[in-house]
């Protein structure tokens, strides 16, 4: 099931298309000419060595207009969200922010997104949290439950159905 099936319900396609185009335009404005491709972001990128993520090349490609290619790439899904690139960019740019925007765009265009994120979204829609309460092991390999520790019940919205409905609509909204 794609995310669109999960969230859009009866959203008219036209509106969806407009949405995507607007986000795309906004994204272009965000990808400034100020990136001078110094590569500092990539030099400290936590996902560079293991997953070959190159934030500077994402900045470069976006500026050159290869948004569609990026939206369809696997590389945008390797970011570890460490915010080092944003912190260290001498031009005060945010490659990680651009990567988030590209991922949002991928989702809005109905692209297949990695399973982990799908699962998280489904769980948040279903019970408000990214995962259900788990049984864990202690050092002796015995199973332990939350209840074993006298902890109060896990927070949960009183009316999950209502929150779910609001969330379904929220996932169709843009930030601006």
């Amino acid at each position: 099931m794609s995310l669109i099936d999960l969230t859009s319900m009866a959203e008219p396609d036209e509106e969806q298309q407009e949405n995507i185009e607007e986000t795309l335009e906004a994204l272009k404005e965000d990808i400034p000419d100020f990136c001078y491709q110094c590569g500092k972001c990539t030099s400290g990128c936590e996902a560079f060595i293991l997953l070959e993520l190159e934030p500077h090349s994402i900045m470069g490609k976006s500026r050159a207009g290869f948004i569609d290619e990026l939206v369809n790439s696997e590389e945008i899904w390797t970011c570890m969200q460490c915010f080092k690139c944003q912190e260290r960019c001498p031009q005060d740019l945010s490659p990680v922010g651009v990567i988030f925007a590209l991922k949002n765009l991928a989702v809005a265009s109905g692209k297949e997104i990695p399973g982990g994120y799908q699962k998280m979204l489904q769980s948040v829609l279903g019970n408000g949290l990214i995962q259900q309460t788990k049984e864990v092991l202690n050092r002796a390999n015995d199973t332990r439950k939350r209840d074993d520790y006298d902890l109060p019940p896990v927070p949960k919205p009183e009316d999950m159905n209502k929150v779910q409905q609001i969330l379904m609509k929220a996932t169709q909204e843009k930030l601006r």
Partner: peptide, 17 residues
């Protein structure tokens, strides 16, 4: 008690959410 996820993991999906 009525709390949910903070939304951070959903940045990857939709920033408004």
């Amino acid at each position: 008690y009525g709390a949910t996820c903070c939304g951070a993991p959903l940045r990857n999906i939709n920033l408004f959410t």
